[in-house]
């Protein structure tokens, strides 16, 4: 008997009587979603800017990062200023990227996380290998909790989907928080209201 059959038959034999799945119904107290999102993401090391136009985003990016930065952009609206990303054949070619710019699907107020999938990433390594990550989300797309998030994700398919909340970080050395463990050292989020 293969291990597969052995494991499955042991599990079948030993598993207890099945119990019901719970209803998932968790009311949330109504809050100002935008404010909560900004406060939460800021508390975990991200920076959020409330903007009303793409031009504002361009100006802010230019003001924030040095002109010698290697910038990679995957957003069409910003391609005039930051070019448009050509998928490299090898993810290793992205190792020198300073700033990566991409669109997030939506933000979650309770935890400051932004959902993005491989489609928006250009290359799947990009949000992790860049030194600074810039995400743009629509200000209307802030939802209260993860329950609404999964309702929204529904049964969509992706290669990679991720909740990304702040810059990469570690507190492994004596619980001292350090931003920029292996991934981006900073996260800048533009919340655009059009």
């Amino acid at each position: 008997m293969s291990s597969r059959e052995a494991i499955l038959s042991a599990v079948k034999k030993n598993q207890p009587v099945e119990s019901e799945l719970p209803e998932l119904n968790f009311p949330f107290t109504s809050v100002n979603l935008k404010d909560t999102f900004i406060r939460t993401l800021t508390a975990i090391g991200g920076r959020v800017m409330d903007v009303t136009s793409w031009n504002e985003i361009v100006d802010n990016i230019k003001a924030t990062y040095s002109t010698t930065s290697q910038v990679v952009n995957t957003i069409q609206e910003l391609s005039a200023d930051f070019g448009s990303f050509q998928r490299p054949s090898n993810p290793h070619d992205l190792k020198e990227v300073t700033v990566a710019i991409m669109k997030g699907d939506f933000g979650v107020a309770e935890n400051g996380a932004i959902w993005l999938t491989d489609e928006a990433m250009g290359n799947q390594v990009l949000p992790y290998i860049c030194e600074h990550l810039v995400l743009v989300i629509n200000a209307e797309n802030i939802i209260p909790t993860l329950h609404e998030a999964y309702e929204r994700i529904g049964n969509s398919t992706y290669t990679l989907g991720t909740f990304l909340a702040g810059p990469s970080k570690t507190a492994d050395i004596e619980q001292s928080l350090v931003l920029g463990a292996h991934g981006p050292k900073s996260l800048l989020v533009f919340m655009i209201t059009s």
Partner: peptide, 10 residues
């Protein structure tokens, strides 16, 4: 509130 990365590999 959540880990920095919660990656869903499909």
């Amino acid at each position: 509130p959540i880990t920095t990365y919660s990656s869903h590999f499909q």
